Amino acid sequence: MSIIDKYIIRKFLGTLAFMLALISIIVLVIDIQSKMPRIEASHLKIGNFLIHFYPYWLIYLVMTFMSILVFITVIFFTSKMANNTEIVAIVSGGVSFHRFARPYLIAALLLASSILVVNHFILPWANVKKNKLIIYTYSTTKQRKFTDRRQISTQISPKEFVFMNSYDPEAKSGDTYLFQRFDKNRKLIYQISAEQAAWDQKKKSFLLTNFYEKSINKDNTEKLSKGEVKYQKLGGDPEEIFPNELLGENKTTPELIRFIRHEKEKGNANVAAYQNELYARTAMPFSIIILTFLALSLSSQKKRGGLGINLAIGISLAFVFVFSFEVLKLVSTSQTLPPLLAMWLPNIVFAPVAFVLYWKRANQ
Rank of each mutant, 00 (worst) to 15 (best):
I68P: 00
I309C: 15
V229T: 07
V162G: 12
L20F: 03
L188C: 12
K172G: 02
S79D: 02
S287I: 07
G94S: 01
I241K: 15
N250M: 00
I51A: 10
L188D: 10
L224M: 06
N250A: 02
D237L: 15
Q180L: 14
V91L: 14
P346C: 02
K214A: 05
V349F: 02
W125R: 10
F163H: 14
F355A: 13
T147K: 09
T78C: 03
F100Q: 03
F286P: 08
R38I: 08
M284L: 07
K80Q: 10
V128P: 02
L317F: 07
K251L: 14
K202R: 01
T64L: 11
G248R: 06
F100E: 04
Q364T: 12
F321T: 05
L298R: 02
R186H: 03
L105E: 03
E249F: 14
N83E: 14
L340W: 15
Q196S: 10
Q180T: 15
S42F: 06
K264Y: 12
A89V: 15
K204Q: 10
Y358S: 03
T252D: 05
I189G: 06
A318E: 08
F121L: 07
L328P: 00
K233N: 05
D175T: 08
K360F: 08
I8G: 01
H52A: 11
A101V: 08
W344K: 06
M343F: 12
P55F: 14
L317Q: 03
A171D: 10
Y167T: 07
G174D: 09
E160C: 01
S316A: 02
V88F: 13
N127R: 11
N347S: 15
L123K: 12
F49P: 02
A354Q: 08
I134P: 05
L58P: 08
Q335L: 12
P285Q: 15
L44C: 08
H98S: 10
M66R: 07
E222Y: 09
N250H: 01
R102S: 09
N210T: 13
N268Y: 00
G14V: 07
